[in-house]
């Protein structure tokens, strides 16, 4: 029952994300556009390229969707509204998100095309950049909560949200989350200008619908993770807790979408260099600072 409710809220969130994306990209606010888009996609042909690696081609988008849903299973929308309240929730989130890479590599390799393949390999490089920057801030957050359970992490922010307590961790996690969801300016695997759509280009019809749905669930999940870890989850005055969750998640999503509009795509070499030379030392510094704060502040 809670599962269905959470999935329903997730679906509504995904729909709102589509509306938001259309609004930010095109300046048009149309509430019905995503519905028409989805139905039209289902009605179109789904073309298979010549000589694909059929297993990878078919599995790629599906795995993207499944991995994103698995990661969404541990995000709490309220103390009761969580699909799977695992004892290792925060760690499980990271483990599920690791399969996003596998899905994109499959989607890159499967179509047997140059653009898709280069997109896939670029995402592999991106993983090397963002992977540590996802895990280390989660470590710092879990340190404060003294538990990996996501609901406990939210409870631990009752006095002060983590965004104020660990702003460095927040900044790094936010950037790494955008990298994981390959949102601009980190949209290297699906670069429109360089790879004509890259990983996404060879899919059409139903498969494209699944790919896009998976990507949107991923964005919502990562926004949910940001809200859970840093913005106090469901906590807030007056309104019921799941509404607060929803508001925070949509705000984080909007922020993620807006950033990319105003900056050009990052170079792969710079992404890797900066994340490893600056990002990881900063993340370690963040853990160190949080450790001191935990000892000092009762």
């Amino acid at each position: 029952m809670t599962t269905l409710l959470v999935l329903l809220l997730l679906a509504i969130g995904v729909y709102l994300l589509a509306v938001l994306e259309n609004w930010i990209a095109n300046g048009r606010f149309q509430l019905t556009a995503p519905a028409y888009s989805a139905i039209a996609l289902l009605g179109r042909e789904s073309v298979i390229p010549r000589k694909p690696d059929l297993l990878f081609f078919e599995v790629g988008p599906v795995l993207l969707l499944i991995a994103a849903l698995l990661a969404a299973a541990v995000i709490p929308l309220s103390p009761d509204l969580i699909i799977a309240d695992l004892a290792t929730g925060a760690l499980f989130l990271n483990a599920a998100l690791a399969y996003i890479l596998v899905a994109l590599i499959m989607a890159g390799w499967g179509p047997n095309g140059a653009y898709a393949m280069i997109g896939g390999w670029r995402f592999l490089g991106q993983l090397v950049a963002y992977a540590m920057l996802i895990v280390m801030p989660i470590t710092a957050v879990a340190m404060r909560a003294e538990s990996l359970v996501t609901t406990d992490i939210v409870f631990s922010q009752a006095g002060l949200w983590n965004i104020v307590y660990q702003p460095l961790g927040f900044a790094l996690f936010f950037i790494a989350a955008m990298g994981l969801a390959f949102l601009p300016p980190f949209d290297l695997p699906t670069a429109k200008g360089e790879l004509a759509g890259g990983v996404e280009a060879e899919y059409s019809g139903v498969r494209l619908a699944i790919f896009r749905l998976g990507r949107m669930v991923l964005i919502i999940t990562l926004a949910g993770a940001t809200a859970t870890f840093y913005l106090g989850g469901w906590q807030g005055p007056l309104l019921p807790d799941w509404i607060w969750s929803a508001i925070k998640i949509m705000l984080v999503t909007a922020a993620m979408l807006m950033v990319g509009k105003y900056v050009p795509r990052i170079r792969e070499t710079h992404l890797l260099a900066w994340c490893w030379k600056f990002g990881i030392p900063l993340a370690l510094l963040n853990i160190f600072i949080v450790g001191i704060l935990i000892v000092v502040i009762p």
Partner: peptide, 20 residues
């Protein structure tokens, strides 16, 4: 065009495609 007769759910698809 896509192969099929324009009836039932396909009509639905066609109208969605006209808008997208």
């Amino acid at each position: 065009a896509r192969q099929g007769s324009l009836s039932g759910i396909r009509h639905f698809f066609a109208r969605a495609m006209a808008r997208d």
